[in-house]
Amino acid sequence: MEPRTALAGPDGPRGRAVAPLVELRNISKHFGAGETRVDALRDVSLDLHPGEVIGLLGPSGSGKTTLLNVIGCIVEPSSGWMRLDGETVYDEKWLRHDLRALRLEKIGFIFQFHNLLPFLDSTDNVAIVLDMARVERGAARARAVELLDYLEVGNRRNAFPASLSGGEAQRVAIARALANRPRIILADEPTAALDSQRAGIVMDLLRKVARDQDAAVIAVTHDEKIYNRFDRILTLRDGRLDGEEREIR
């Protein structure tokens, strides 16, 4: 383990000369003003490269979720500059107004409690993302089945979330996050609700996805048993990325 900066060099973390998928420069975010002002993020600069799986650690209130929300274009930063998949989306202000379309196009989300829609079966929970992207229904369902098979839950394609185990539900959620072939995958405590064996399986799946789809995965976690599954671990303290970055692999 050696200290590194969060800004990977031009060669990327594995020595590959590739453009980062996520570039953050001096991103700050504060809530409130005056005496009630809270600085959730302070001058965060970060590069994520294709194929990388990054762990984001930090104590409660350190700004992990805010950083995830900023990268996910859910929360507007207060200042800074951000580029996603080669497109500058924020430069002191949003440069795109259709942020939901941007999320649909570029970002996949994985939640702590899978957040599957309870009224859709596994296939439709995955296909809905493609449906929103106006993909023809047959093609959307075929892609959904393909992803469910890829994540080894194809046998549960007609099951509703209530009848899925935690591990199965999380795989379906991962399939949904991948449906539109996003290159940036944001995961919020993806293994918190799983036992260590299933947590390991899910992390291996994320690694496989990152490799196969040339995507970058950033996961907020407190789960020590999966630390060894990340390429790098970034730590946030009081809204700052601390200078020490652990490279795991």
Partner: peptide, 16 residues
């Protein structure tokens, strides 16, 4: 509300 928040997060337009 939770489902609606999820839909918005994954990119569902308001009209949906």
């Amino acid at each position: 509300l939770k489902e609606i928040a999820t839909l918005k997060l994954i990119g569902a337009p308001d009209r949906r």
